[in-house]
């Protein structure tokens, strides 16, 4: 339990998270880079979709992270409300814009893929619709956070909202599924070609893992910025800023 309390201390977290970010950044960039490179250059074209399918090497990791990010925010929300851990609060605030960006990316790449494949930018398909509503859920959290001035109240409000949201995500997905199957008999299924060759699948999984590390890296940096801003009046932040100042003047 000792490390838990130590990690909960904000100056300690700030000190450790700088080097820790590299452990997310380097493997993340390597794996995601390999995934994208292999997806674009090494993997053979799909026998039905030709080269257009290569966009899944960005699309699938983004879609995965949109769900992963929201779930992680809800877990952090639970921790915030039950144990009042400050780091969890900061995590929600830092993860929300990253998660929203990946959700947006998943929608945009899906739309770009849909144009040549389905002949239209947008279909009211169950999966697409739930992803769009997930984006709205993210935007709700961001809007709530920017509307409330006190950072602690804002973070706790976002914690509760993401918790309520995560209970609703499966219900929304299920209801949209039901709505769509009633609406138009056969749905376009993104996973219609469920069998994927191993040489296609491995770069995809590596890429997804790499993007997850990048998600962690960006969120960690976001947390550091949040932390400095929130604790800007505390002594330990003052000391860090002073040290930085001295460093800069020394160099120049």
């Amino acid at each position: 339990m000792r490390w838990f309390h130590r990690f909960g201390s904000l100056p300690y977290f700030y000190r450790v998270s700088g080097p820790l970010a590299w452990w997310f950044a380097v493997p993340g960039l390597l794996m995601a880079g390999y995934g994208i490179f292999a997806g674009l250059a090494l993997v053979p074209p799909d026998y039905q979709q030709g080269d257009a399918f290569r966009i899944i090497y960005i699309h699938v990791p983004s879609a995965w992270l949109s769900l992963f990010g929201y779930t992680a925010m809800a877990v952090a929300g639970f921790v915030t409300l039950v144990w009042r851990l400050k780091l969890a609060e900061i995590f929600i605030v830092a993860a929300a814009p990253v998660g929203a960006s990946f959700t947006f990316l998943a929608l945009v790449t899906g739309s770009i893929w849909g144009k040549p494949m389905w002949g239209t930018w947008w279909v009211w398909d169950a999966r697409l619709t739930s992803e769009l509503i997930l984006l709205f859920l993210y935007l709700g959290v961001l809007a709530l956070h920017s509307a409330i001035e006190s950072p602690r109240t804002a973070a706790r409000a976002c914690a509760l909202l993401s918790l309520v949201g995560v209970i609703n995500v499966p219900i929304i997905h299920y209801s949209v599924d039901w709505w769509n199957t009633l609406h138009q008999g056969s749905t376009v299924n993104l996973l219609g070609h469920s069998h994927m060759e191993t040489n296609m699948l491995v770069p995809l999984l590596l890429g997804a893992l790499g993007f997850t590390f990048i998600f962690g890296w960006l969120t960690l940096w976001g947390m550091r910025v949040q932390l400095l801003w929130r604790e800007r009046r505390s002594r330990w932040v003052g000391r860090i800023l002073e040290a930085d100042d001295r460093h800069v003047t020394h160099r120049s």
Partner: peptide
């Protein structure tokens, strides 16, 4: 702001 927060959650009821 209230509409941004609650309309996405109203989707299942609407459907």
């Amino acid at each position: 702001l209230l509409s941004l927060l609650i309309f996405p959650l109203y989707v299942p009821i609407l459907i």
